[in-house]
Simulated assay, not measured.
Amino acid sequence: METHPQRREAPDARTARSHGSVEPEHGASTAAPETGFRIPGTTRRVPATVAMPLIVALAFGCFTIFRTHTDGTKGGQAILYGLCAAVVSGALGLYLVHFQRTMITETRAIGYGALFGVSMGWVYSLGGESILKSTGFGLGLGAVMFVVSLYIFRGHRVREPHGLHRPHTAHPMPHRTHAAH
């Protein structure tokens, strides 16, 4: 019996090639792009839909600590503000990211704009600014976030879970032009 030398390939390459989905001779890559973040010491990955809100919440908590220091709050009280801000914004961010697949584009953009605007308005008020000034600051940044997120969501329509936002359909009644006499 003849023995054939075995080629050593990565398991995904053999699986992909056996199912015919990847053709490396045409320049296709057999390795799937990695998404998410690796947990140190393990082979598991945290999905980006979990990792990104947590990273942003940590950054927001650090920004809250910085902002409370500008008002004169020192030590444990500033850290407590930052910890509370990170926990609340992280929970709301995870909630928004979890349910964004069920929302239409405008509602999703309003959600991101509202979360960002309220968060930034609250942190702005921690520096000793007036309520009116903080509210205006939060509304302005929320509106900017709404426009930016709407632009991003509309620019990537193919990733929408429910397809294109508003596909164009023919009107049931054709438009009539009236000639002036």
Rank of each mutant, 00 (worst) to 15 (best):
T135G: 15
V88R: 04
G90N: 03
Y124D: 03
S149R: 04
L83H: 00
F99Y: 13
T107F: 13
S18D: 14
R166S: 07
P5Q: 06
Y95Q: 10
R176A: 11
I104V: 07
T177N: 08
P161L: 09
M173T: 14
T43M: 09
I55M: 13
H165P: 05
T135K: 04
E9L: 13
P174E: 14
A109F: 05
T3G: 04
D12F: 05
L139H: 00
V147H: 04
G76E: 11
R101V: 08
C84V: 12
C62E: 12
T64F: 06
R159P: 00
I104H: 14
F137M: 06
S125I: 01
H168M: 13
S29D: 14
E2P: 12
T35F: 12
A57D: 06
R45L: 15
S89Y: 03
G90Y: 04
L141R: 00
Y112T: 13
G113D: 04
A28N: 12
P167S: 02
L54G: 03
V46N: 01
T102S: 15
L58H: 00
F63Y: 10
R7A: 14
M1P: 09
P161W: 06
E160P: 01
G117N: 07
T35M: 04
A51I: 04
A78N: 05
T70Y: 05
A85L: 01
F146H: 11
F99Q: 14
H175D: 09
G82K: 01
V123K: 04
R67M: 14
R67N: 12
K74L: 14
H168S: 12
S130H: 05
E34V: 15
